[in-house]
């Protein structure tokens, strides 16, 4: 990791620890100046980015997180059977503006089914979902067109909202950059790696400026840096007042979420 990478990781850590934007920029600029003038390996000068960010937070404090707003997603009494298998039984979840909710559980407990029901793609056998505002959904896989360029995906999604193609392309590239991906020079979707394709998937779902964002294991194929960028972006979206639901089975992410829905295993097997 060179100095630039270290500074990027440091900035991401500050952001995740809710250090205010101006303060974080100032601290990173100071560290950069110190490295430029004094030289040396940032790992020797400052230590690990996480540890240094934690030390900074301890000394200057953090910006108070925005208070959760009104309810954006309310799913109640969701029950779903596939044949005789009960995949979901009376599952409920309420997510407010400015909150991240995690849907967790073992394989086959119906996490993805629950999210697809919330997105209105699958009908439940019982229960209702109320969504306030615009809804967007990022599937676990698929959801992109193999023979289109990322820019063309942005234009296609943008046109749904009546956004002209140039602003749609610009907004897509900017959103992709938040995930550390340069979408402007990318190849057809079918030639993208699994992780990059998932970044395209994720970018498409944030492009419509949704009030409620449903993400089904959005980090599949991500490397460590992209994973950090993802949570950085989710935190930013939360702070902007979006309600986010993430299906996940990685429990170490849970310290960054506000609400957890732990689904019990399905009866007689099931599907995820």
């Amino acid at each position: 990791m060179n100095a630039d990478d270290w500074l990027r990781a440091f900035a991401a850590e500050l952001h995740q620890r809710r250090v205010g934007g101006d303060v974080a920029r100032h601290v990173v600029a100071e560290a950069a100046t110190h490295l430029r003038e004094g030289g040396g390996d940032p790992w020797l000068v400052f230590g690990a980015p996480q540890a240094y960010a934690a030390a900074i937070v301890e000394s200057i404090g953090t910006a108070p997180g925005p208070r959760p707003g009104p309810v954006r997603l309310h799913a109640r009494g969701i029950t779903k059977r596939y044949g005789r298998q009960v995949v979901l039984r009376d599952a409920s979840l309420t997510v407010r503006a400015g909150q991240i909710a995690a849907v967790v559980g073992a394989n086959g407990c119906g996490k993805s089914t629950f999210l697809r029901i919330c997105a209105g793609l699958v009908s439940p056998d019982a229960g209702e979902v109320t969504v306030a505002g615009r809804l967007s959904y990022c599937p676990q896989q698929g959801g992109t067109a193999d023979f289109l360029l990322p820019d063309e995906h942005f234009v296609l999604v943008g046109a749904g909202q009546g956004v002209p193609r140039v602003p749609a392309r610009r907004a897509g590239r900017a959103a992709a950059r938040q995930l550390g991906w340069d979408a402007g020079n990318a190849a057809l979707a079918r030639h993208l790696s699994g992780g990059t394709r998932q970044k395209l998937n994720l970018t498409m779902s944030t492009l419509t400026q949704p009030d409620v964002l449903l993400l089904d294991e959005p980090y599949q194929g991500f490397d460590q840096g992209s994973y950090v960028n993802l949570w950085d972006q989710l935190t930013r979206l939360r702070d902007e007042g979006r309600a986010i639901v993430v299906v996940t089975h990685l429990l170490n992410q849970l310290d960054r979420v506000d609400v957890v829905l732990d689904l019990p295993p399905a009866h007689q097997g099931g599907r995820s």
Binding site: G120, G143, S205
Partner: peptide, 15 residues
Amino acid sequence: SAARELEPRLRLAGY
């Protein structure tokens, strides 16, 4: 067939 997975999300995107 190729658009089968894409269309539901385009529907959510305003189509």
